[in-house]
């Protein structure tokens, strides 16, 4: 295999767009943990469910192959709306009961959701992989052929990064959310119902996962069990980036996405093993992550 520019550059682009996908899913995971102190095992399962819903919406609007590429937008919107509603509902009915419970039990509850939602997807959509084909021509950048859809995903990732940053830094609600990361009491002292914050944060996080599910639809086929692969990588991202840090999550996501995309070429079955090694190294040397400041347990 030649490791020239023609190989490295497209692979790099694939890695960056994979990193963007990781960022979209991991950002919600990190935000939910930072604010609510709950590790949501089911987060990537919401991503997968979002993808399937987007698929159904897409095929309701047009054929799975050769339809207008812009159909991805309404399809994704449907998925995001559906998952946000689901997120709000789940927070109200289930997650809310878990505040103040022990970490292992919280993990088990969200793990149960992985099994339940995963099987419900199988029940509704069956076991075959689902995908849509847009038939976009490749772009030629620096003389290399690049899937033009990579650029779309990278743009969406950057937009979400900017949006999240703006939301957390510049809006009143965002500032309250950031305050909630540090002190629940302080937020309540401001006269804001923490329950509302939690519900919104959970819904928002799940919505981001659904956005990722919709956006990535034209690139990778949906397959049962893909959520498991993704959630361990998202754990890797939030651990490496540091829980609760948006910038940290972003940098770690790109880092891991690129690492993965090269690793899978060099050692197809062991790419995940390299990610695990990465996580172990970070947890052992710097458990609060590259960008985090303290160890929260």
């Amino acid at each position: 295999m030649e490791f020239g520019f023609d190989f490295v550059f497209p692979q790099l682009m694939a890695g960056i767009s994979r990193g963007m996908l990781l960022f979209l899913v991991a950002a919600g995971l990190s935000l939910i943990f930072g604010v609510m102190n709950i590790l949501n095992f089911a987060h990537a399962t919401f991503w997968l469910l979002g993808g399937y819903i987007a698929y159904s919406a897409f095929t309701a609007f047009g054929p799975p192959s050769g339809a207008n590429p812009l159909l991805v937008i309404p399809a994704t919107a449907v998925a995001v709306a559906a998952l946000m509603l689901l997120g709000f509902g789940l927070e109200r009915v289930l997650i809310r009961r878990m505040y103040g419970r022990e970490v292992p039990e919280q993990l088990l509850l969200t793990f149960a959701l992985v099994l339940i939602i995963g099987d419900l997807i199988k029940l509704v959509w069956g076991v075959e992989d689902r995908s849509v084909f847009l038939g976009l021509p490749p772009a030629v950048i620096f003389g290399a052929f690049i899937n033009i859809y990579y650029l779309v995903i990278i743009a969406v990732g950057l937009a979400v990064l900017a949006g999240l940053y703006w939301f957390l830094q510049r809006t009143r609600f965002g500032r309250i959310v950031r305050a909630a990361v540090h002190s629940r009491e302080m937020v309540e002292a401001l006269g804001i119902r923490i329950a509302t914050i939690y519900m919104v944060v959970f819904g928002l996080g799940v919505g981001l996962a659904a956005l990722a599910g919709g956006v990535v639809l034209p690139l990778t086929p949906l397959a049962l069990g893909a959520d498991i692969d993704l959630i361990v990588q998202c754990f890797a991202v939030v651990v490496v980036g540091g829980f609760g840090s948006v910038i940290g999550t972003f940098v770690a996501a790109i880092l891991i996405g690129v690492t993965y995309s090269f690793a899978i070429f060099l050692w197809p079955d062991g790419a995940l093993a390299i990610i695990f090694l990465f996580v172990i190294a970070v947890l052992v040397v710097r458990p609060w992550g590259l960008f985090g400041t303290e160890l929260r347990t």
Partner: peptide, 27 residues
């Protein structure tokens, strides 16, 4: 390594080691 951490960090580190050993045996 694992006993240096608690809570979710312990959970994630044990998961990572377990999967790493799985891949070693698998390969």
């Amino acid at each position: 390594f694992c006993v240096r951490l608690t809570g979710i960090y312990f959970a994630i580190l044990t998961l990572s080691f377990g999967e790493l050993l799985y891949y070693i045996v698998f390969q």
